[in-house]
């Protein structure tokens, strides 16, 4: 068969199967493929591609040149038909919910050249088909939608947003605890100052625990190499994490010694320095993901 100058007519009739009460309205697309003389084309390959998702469905016309693709979501579609040795045709159709539409499109292929068009700068292929993702050689894993992965990413983002939010909230009682430490320690004998410091420290510890929970429980994404400021952010957790455990223990010891009228001594004397290092590491962790250095 002479491939040159063969035309065919590609007719499309849309039939919607609509469920008015359904959020997920579906449609059925009936495709009729004929050549330029009006003769039906059997065994033609029909590809129906959702413009929004890029997902494709393939079908083949029967001996009457018809095929039906059902369970399609409403939306815009690219419909491509090709017949061996005949040519190809393409159409864009819109499947709309709530309206039963029958539409016929006539598409014409003017010519299909067998000769390579060496003079063309962009490597033409010997037909009129627009290039597709398949032509570009991407693997299926590159192009396939992964709803489970998206759900995992959504959960991760949610948990890290909570982590960020609680981290910011924690800085308020943390700073207040540091400020009140001036009157709680040293030669001060005020029980009230010590108690205020204790309460603020306890609030800080609790909020810190919640902050840490969201970071620890956020899903890990396989195959992701940690790089950038988040590396420093995570490394600093190895300082402020143990510090947030040690500080209240040492604080409780210091509180007890002061309440007994003793001078803070022994390991309890490290409460202040440990708290400062912990707060410093916490602040640096916050800045590491907030500012660009």
């Amino acid at each position: 068969m002479n491939l040159k100058a063969v035309q065919f007519v590609f007719g499309i009739i849309l039939i919607f199967v609509l469920t008015a009460h359904s959020l997920y309205a579906q449609a059925t697309l009936s495709v009729s493929v004929t050549d330029s003389s009006g003769k039906v084309v059997g065994n033609a390959k029909v590809t129906v591609k959702n413009a929004a998702t890029g997902l494709s469905t393939e079908a083949q016309t029967d001996s009457t040149g018809l095929c039906t693709v059902s369970n399609l979501a409403v939306g815009e579609y690219e419909v491509l038909a090709s017949g061996d040795g005949i040519g190809t045709a393409i159409a864009h159709v819109t499947l709309t919910a709530g309206v039963e539409v029958q539409q016929t499109l006539l598409l014409t292929v003017t010519s299909v050249s067998q000769a390579p068009a060496d003079n063309l700068p962009n490597a033409p292929t010997p037909n009129k088909t627009e290039p597709s993702l398949e032509d570009l050689g991407f693997s299926k894993t590159d192009t396939q939608a992964n709803a489970a992965q998206q759900a995992l990413l959504d959960k991760r983002t949610h948990m890290l947003k909570m982590h960020q939010r609680f981290g910011l909230i924690t800085t308020v009682p943390l700073l207040a605890t540091l400020i009140t430490s001036v009157n709680a320690g040293g030669k001060s004998t005020s029980t009230t100052d010590r108690n205020v410091h204790l309460v603020l420290g306890a609030v800080t510890g609790d909020l810190y625990g919640i902050t840490a929970y969201y970071a620890i429980r956020a899903p890990r994404i396989k195959g992701t190499e940690t790089k950038g400021p988040i590396k420093l952010h995570k490394a600093l957790a190895w300082i402020h994490g143990p510090g947030m455990i040690l500080t209240p223990i040492l604080g409780a010891m210091a509180y007890s010694q002061k309440s007994n009228g003793e001078k803070v001594h022994g390991i309890a004397a490290a409460h202040g320095p440990v708290a400062i290092v912990t707060a410093g590491a916490f602040g640096a962790a916050l800045l590491s993901v907030s500012m660009k250095f």
Partner: peptide
């Protein structure tokens, strides 16, 4: 990317 030319027009993806 790829370009396909026909009838004086080129489609690029």
């Amino acid at each position: 990317g790829k370009g396909v030319c026909h009838d004086g027009q080129c489609d690029f993806l």
